[in-house]
Nucleic acid binder design. Sequence first.
DNA 1: ACCTGAACACCGTTCAAGT
DNA 2: ACCTGAACACCGTTCAAGT
Lengths: 191, 191
Amino acid sequence: MARQRPARPMRADARRNYDKILSTARIVFTERGTDASLDEIARRAGVGPGTLYRHFPTREALVDALMQDWTDRVSADADAAIATDLPAREMLSDWFEHFIEHITLHRGAASKIAAAMDDPASPMYRKCQVMADANRRVIDHLEARGELRPSVDPVNVMRLVSGVATVADSSCTDLDVTPMLDVVVDGIVAD
Amino acid sequence: MARQRPARPMRADARRNYDKILSTARIVFTERGTDASLDEIARRAGVGPGTLYRHFPTREALVDALMQDWTDRVSADADAAIATDLPAREMLSDWFEHFIEHITLHRGAASKIAAAMDDPASPMYRKCQVMADANRRVIDHLEARGELRPSVDPVNVMRLVSGVATVADSSCTDLDVTPMLDVVVDGIVAD
DNA sequence: ACCTGAACACCGTTCAAGT
DNA sequence: ACCTGAACACCGTTCAAGT
């Protein structure tokens, strides 16, 4: 496995700008979604556009940096769901809803995550894998308990739930995901 | 119900430009997806940007105009699926796959359709309803045959399948939708 | 009634000049 | 090593002038 390189410490002003950009991006993405103007982020962060570009060469790189917090929480949510030892239906519903809640935190994020999941070239790929692993743990656990249909593929479950998130996210109405998730859950658990 | 207004005939040059823009859009959308530059479409159609804008005030209006063909075909596909009288699983799989094939004809279209489905303000709303009706016919038919789980909502099925289409469409790899559809089908048909 | 194309505002991206 | 901000290319949108 490739090791994480030890990330040479940044110069003080660089570090300050980096953090300022990130916190500003969080605000602007919350206001306008992940397709908000990068120019506006730079302006409100008080840096030149070139500075933003130096730290985050692509929009995805910026989204990726913001995702750091979630992946940890998503991972924790999966383990918490497993720990409850609830029946399969309840466990899956809880897990799926938590997952969707996280990846729809900023408008437009869900579709970017769904796309990055199958794109190793994406800056977000690694974090998608962390989330996919979290999902796999839940599925594997229920699989071991014999409560799932044969040949349920965790990766496809992940894609399907991401699809639900994307639909809910891009809908202008505040869509309730529960009915859609119920169908997915019914399609996964054994009769 | 609101009547279709009888659409006064266009001036000859307007008609010609309208058609030329549409056929060019079809080509450009095929090449670059539904987020392609409108400027390029106007240029290649040999009209000024203002002309494109006059006929199609928004990108969605242009996509909507291109969708005309599909909605008919999608509707026909639904009735054809019903006519086969296959078992529920096969009928649903066939119908879903045909539906997805159509709405992913141009990259980016699936997500626009999924979004328009719950947005009466969208120019594409009516055509989405035609497709939703087609889906409802299939579901209702199987419902009447007693082969579905109780309380399967056609609208949610539609959203779910659109979600699958969106995921497949935005994935850079040529994703096979069958495994995801299998889960959905299992979640719909009675045990 | 419809078209043209210049004009404008906005945005992502690059890069030479600075510290 | 990092930042700045001007410059560029591109795009959607508008509108005055033309037929």
